[in-house]
Every structure is written in C-alpha cells, then in structure tokens.
C-alpha cells in the first residue's frame, strides 16, 4: 500500500496518509470540516454527523471515513452546508440551550458552529425536555440540559483518563449520559483534573467555582469563527 494518498476536497488537492480519516487529512491540509463529536485526541465516534461530506457523491462522516486515492470530496457546497445547518438546529431544539446564562457561551463549539453557519434561530419547534442536573461532585457540575450526546466524555474518561466514569444509558429520545454510580458523579472516581472535564464541546460539564473568569466578548469564538485556526494553516502554507 502506498503511504501517500492523493484526493481532492472541493477541488483542492489534498495529500493524506494511509489509515488517516478524511477529517484528519483535511485538518492537516488546513481545510476545516465542521465537527462536534470528533476530537483530535479521541477515537472517532461518528454520531453528530456534522462532519458529513460527499465522497464520490455519497454521504460519509469525514471523522470515520478513511482517505482513499482519487476520491472527490465535497465539503462546503450549498447543499451540505444546509444539511449541516439542519443538524445543528436539531441539537438546539432537542436540548435546553440557554446561551445567555451558560458559562460556556463564547467557548461553546455548538454555539460557534451555529454562528459559523449563520443560524439566527432554529426553524424547528423547541422540545423543552425535562432533564436533570448533577451537582454531587465537589468540583464538577453536570447539566444534562446542554448535553448533545457526542460521547466525548465517555471516550475521554476511558481513553485519556484510564477510568470508566461514563456510559450511555437508555435509547432513542431517552438516551443520556450515565455515571458509574447510581447516586451521581460525586460517587464515581471522577476528578476535576480528568481530561473529560475540559473536552466537553458544550456547557454540560463545568468546573465549579470558576464562572466567567474570562469575560464574554473575549472568548474563543467571540471574534473568530470556529475552525479559523485550522484554516490559518492553509493560509500559512501558501
């Protein structure tokens, strides 16, 4: 097998390595493919579907799809952007996302993606689900209202922290993140220094007692769209 793989994304020649995913190769080449469940330090999950691209005309999740020689990948077409918008809007109405009092606002990847896609309001009706809070841990809050079921915490606890604090519970509309203790996170071996705490893309996992250390207006995505740092690589490369 040749180690180098050549393909195109929106007509741009991209070089990848065998075994890489489209998302990894794109990121290295300075092309941003939107994503929520994917994280560079974690095994791909393929659940949010936001990174879906067309590979030779067929929809595939870029975070799990391996690069292949000669593939024609479409990323930023009007059609795909519309479909991604719909997914992000679905996530907004499915949970309870009150950005105005969320500590994560400005650093939230869901919100940032909505900004990047130019969403002014979701076109779907809000579900206003009943979801729980868990404050049993001395240093960590869990707010299921904001959870988008991306599974980053589940994977981070296993793969990066060497623990097994979370797993998905229930199915379909009743699916949620569960803890390895019936009485809440405080009864697990989760620690505030664990990677799962900061890896949450939304405000579902927060450290206690550190609210608004960085003021709104100076946060990660307040001025620059999400993905800018990846796109900067390409600008630099040229």
């Amino acid at each position: 097998m040749s180690a180098t793989i050549h393909f195109t994304i929106d007509g741009v020649e991209v070089t990848g390595k065998a075994g890489q995913t489209i998302l990894q190769a794109a990121s290295e080449a300075g092309i941003y493919i939107p994503r929520l469940c994917a994280h560079k330090d974690l095994t791909p999950h393929g659940s949010c579907r936001v990174c879906t691209v067309m590979v030779n005309g067929r929809p595939q999740a870029a975070c799990t799809q391996p690069v292949s020689d000669g593939a024609i990948v479409e990323n930023e077409t009007a059609e795909i952007k519309e479909l991604r918008r719909n997914l992000v809007e679905m996530l907004f109405v499915e949970g309870n996302h009150y950005c105005m009092f969320c500590e994560k606002s400005g650093n939230c990847e869901l919100q940032a993606l909505a900004y990047r896609l130019g969403i002014q309001a979701p076109r779907y009706p809000y579900f206003f689900p009943q979801r729980a809070l868990d404050a049993t841990h001395p240093d960590i809050f869990i707010d299921h209202n904001r959870c988008i079921l991306c599974g980053r915490c589940v994977r981070a606890s296993k793969e990066l922290d060497g623990k097994n604090v979370f797993q998905f519970i229930g199915r379909g509309a009743h699916k949620r993140v569960g803890f390895n203790a019936p009485d809440g996170l405080g009864h697990t071996d989760a620690a505030v220094s664990d990677r799962f705490v900061s890896i949450c893309p939304v405000g579902a996992i927060l450290k206690k007692r550190v609210g608004y250390a960085i003021p709104v207006g100076q946060r990660l995505f307040d001025k620059r769209p999400i993905g800018s740092e990846i796109e900067a690589r390409r600008a630099k490369g040229k």
Binding site: N96, Y98, A121, Y126, F128, Q130
Partner: peptide, 18 residues
C-alpha cells in the same frame, strides 16, 4: 422581528418550562 433570545426561544422566563 423577534428581537432577542426571549422572543426567539423563550429565554430566561422559559426556565419555568421545566
């Protein structure tokens, strides 16, 4: 024009929806 988050998604008052 729905102006602001309360008009758009209920906002803070909608916390009582739960």
């Amino acid at each position: 024009i729905a102006l602001g988050d309360c008009a758009t998604m209920g906002g803070l008052p909608a916390m009582r929806n739960h």
